Simulated assay, not measured.
Amino acid sequence: MTKVVLIGPPGSGKTTLGRLLAQRLGLTFRDTDSDVEAVAGKAVSEIFIEDGEERFRELEHEAVRAALAEHDGVLSLGGGAILHEKTQELLGGHPVVYLEVGLADAVQRVGLGSARPLLVLNPRSQLKKLMDERRPIYERLAVLRVVTDKRDPEELVEEIVKGLPA
C-alpha cells in the first residue's frame, strides 16, 4: 500500500517535497503525471491539446488506480486528479497529505509563462479559480494538511513525517 499520497494545487510542492520525503523515509517516489506521460507517449500539455481534458482525466484516473495498487512509497498526484469521483473513493484509507499554498507563492513557483494547459489564458486568475474550486475536496480527502508558503522544504518534510498517522 502507498505510504504517503501528496495532493494539492499546481505550485504546492508535490514533486519537490515528494522526492525529499521519499528520500527521508527510505522509500521510492512516483508521480502520476509522469505515469500518464509514459502511457500516452507525450507530455501532459500535448494530451490536453491533442486529446482533450476528458481523455487526460481518464488516463490520470487509471494512473492513480495503478499507482495506489502497485506503489509502496510516496505518491504525488496531479493537481486535478482529485476531481474524479472514483479517484476520491480510491484515496479513502490512504494517508493523504494536502499541501496547501497561497496564490502568491503558487504563482511564483508555477510562473506566469507556464506550459500548464489549464493556466494558458490569464494564468493568475485561472490558478486562483482552480485553487478555490478544489480546496474543499483537498481538505476533505486529507488526513494531514501542511501549509507550504515561504517555508523550507526540509522543514516541511519534518512536519509531514511527524504528522503522518502511525
Results as ranks from 00 to 15, higher is better:
Ala38Phe: 03
Glu159Pro: 09
Ala22Trp: 00
Glu158His: 11
Glu158Tyr: 04
Pro10Ser: 13
Lys150Met: 13
Gly93Asn: 02
Leu21Gln: 11
Asp132Asn: 14
Arg24Gly: 05
Glu50Tyr: 02
Val64Gly: 03
Tyr138Pro: 09
Arg55His: 04
Gly52Asp: 11
Gln108Tyr: 13
Asp149Lys: 06
Gly26His: 04
Ser76Val: 00
Arg55Phe: 09
Leu27Gln: 11
Gly111Phe: 08
Ala38Ile: 02
Leu21Cys: 07
Lys3Trp: 01
Gly26Asp: 10
Ser34Thr: 15
Ala81Leu: 08
Pro136Thr: 10
Glu89Cys: 05
Arg24Ala: 14
Ile137Lys: 13
Arg55Thr: 14
Val157Leu: 05
Leu90Ile: 11
Glu60Ser: 08
Val97Leu: 13
His61Val: 10
Phe48Leu: 07
Asp152Trp: 04
Thr32His: 03
Pro136Ile: 10
Arg135Asn: 05
Gly73His: 01
Ser12Val: 06
Leu118Thr: 04
Pro153Asn: 03
His84Lys: 15
Arg145Pro: 04
Leu103Pro: 06
Glu62Ser: 04
Ser45Cys: 11
Leu91His: 03
Glu46Cys: 01
Asp149Pro: 05
Glu54Tyr: 04
Leu91Phe: 05
Pro10Val: 08
Leu90Arg: 14
Val143Phe: 14
Leu17Asp: 07
Gly79Asn: 06
Arg135Lys: 12
Val101Pro: 02
Lys162Ser: 06
Gly113Cys: 02
Pro10Gly: 02
Val147Ala: 10
Ser114Ala: 12
Gln88Ser: 07
Ser114Ile: 08
Ile7His: 08
Leu17Thr: 04
Glu62Phe: 04
Leu83Trp: 12
Leu141Asp: 09
Leu99Phe: 05
Thr148Trp: 13
Glu133Asp: 15
Val161Phe: 11
Leu75Cys: 03
Pro95Glu: 13
Arg19Thr: 12
His71Asn: 12
Leu112Glu: 15
Pro123Lys: 11
Leu127Gln: 06
Val36Arg: 06
Pro9Phe: 14
Ala106Phe: 02
Ala66Thr: 13
Gly79Glu: 07
Gly79Thr: 01
Pro9Gln: 13
Leu141Trp: 01
Gly92Met: 13
Val110Thr: 10
Phe56Leu: 08
Gly78Phe: 09
Glu133Asn: 12
His61Ser: 15
Glu158Trp: 02
Thr16Cys: 08
Leu118Asn: 03
Ser125Gln: 15
Lys128Trp: 11
Gly26Gln: 00
Leu68Arg: 03
Leu119Trp: 10
Val44Lys: 12
Thr148His: 13
Gly8Glu: 10
Val120Thr: 08
Gly113Lys: 14
Ile160Tyr: 02
Val44Gln: 07
Ser12Thr: 03
Gly102Cys: 04
Leu112Pro: 00
Thr15Met: 08
Leu27Glu: 09
Met1Pro: 11
